[in-house]
Computed example of a mutant assay.
Amino acid sequence: MVILGLLLIGAGAIAILSALFVSEGRGELLGIDMPILAVFLVGVGAGAAILWGYTILKYGAKRELRARRERKELNELSAKLEKADEDRKRDDESL
């Protein structure tokens, strides 16, 4: 998720930067002659891709953090359970 978000942000940024350097009176984007409306729509799409990429990046980071916390908590609970089992076995053997 994080990688997809970064890729979308990068693609959008490249499209916007290439549209900024369009020569006067010509609609050229990455070496392709295009109508000005098409260049504008590419810019809108690039902005949407950046926002979408940021949203995916944020969601993926939150999800990874939550999973990491849950893993840590499960490991702690597992260690407590193993310790309790060992204590119970020792108590059973001593009887």
Rank of each mutant, 00 (worst) to 15 (best):
D87M: 03
I3W: 03
V22N: 07
N75I: 13
S18E: 08
F40P: 01
A46L: 05
R71W: 05
K89C: 03
G27K: 02
G12N: 02
N75L: 12
S78C: 11
L7N: 01
G5E: 00
I9S: 01
G5F: 00
F21D: 10
Y54W: 11
N75H: 10
A67I: 07
I32C: 11
G60R: 04
E64Y: 06
E28Y: 13
E93H: 09
K58A: 12
A15M: 02
V39A: 11
E28L: 05
D87I: 01
L30E: 08
K62H: 05
G12D: 00
L65G: 14
E93D: 10
A49Q: 00
R69W: 03
L8P: 00
N75G: 04
F21N: 14
R69F: 04
D85M: 07
K58D: 15
L8V: 01
A67V: 09
L37W: 08
R26M: 11
G53F: 00
E24K: 14
F40C: 12
I50L: 02
T55K: 11
V42Y: 02
L6T: 02
W52Y: 15
F21A: 10
E73T: 15
L20M: 14
L51G: 14
E76I: 10
L20I: 10
D33R: 15
L65H: 08
A46R: 01
V2D: 06
L8C: 04
L6W: 01
I3H: 04
L8I: 01
I36H: 13
K72V: 11
L74E: 04
A48G: 13
D87Y: 02
D87V: 00
G45R: 00
R90S: 05
A15N: 00
E64M: 07
S78V: 07
A11T: 08
V44A: 08
D33G: 07
V44S: 03
I14W: 11
K72E: 12
G25Y: 00
L37Q: 07
G10C: 15
R66G: 04
I36T: 12
A38Y: 05
L4D: 06
E93I: 10
L65P: 02
K80C: 04
E24R: 13
E64C: 04
A38T: 11
W52C: 03
V39I: 14
A61C: 14
V39W: 06
A67E: 12
A13R: 00
G47F: 14
Y59S: 15
A84K: 09
S78E: 15
L8M: 11
L37S: 07
E73N: 12
W52P: 00
L41S: 10
I9R: 03
A46Y: 01
I50R: 00
M1I: 11
T55W: 14
L8F: 05
V39Y: 14
L4Q: 06
L17I: 15
S23E: 06
I36K: 11
R63E: 15
A19Q: 03
R88V: 08
K58V: 09
G47T: 10
A84Q: 15
E64N: 13
L57Q: 08
S23A: 06
D87A: 05
L6E: 05
V42S: 05
E86A: 10
L77W: 09
K80P: 01
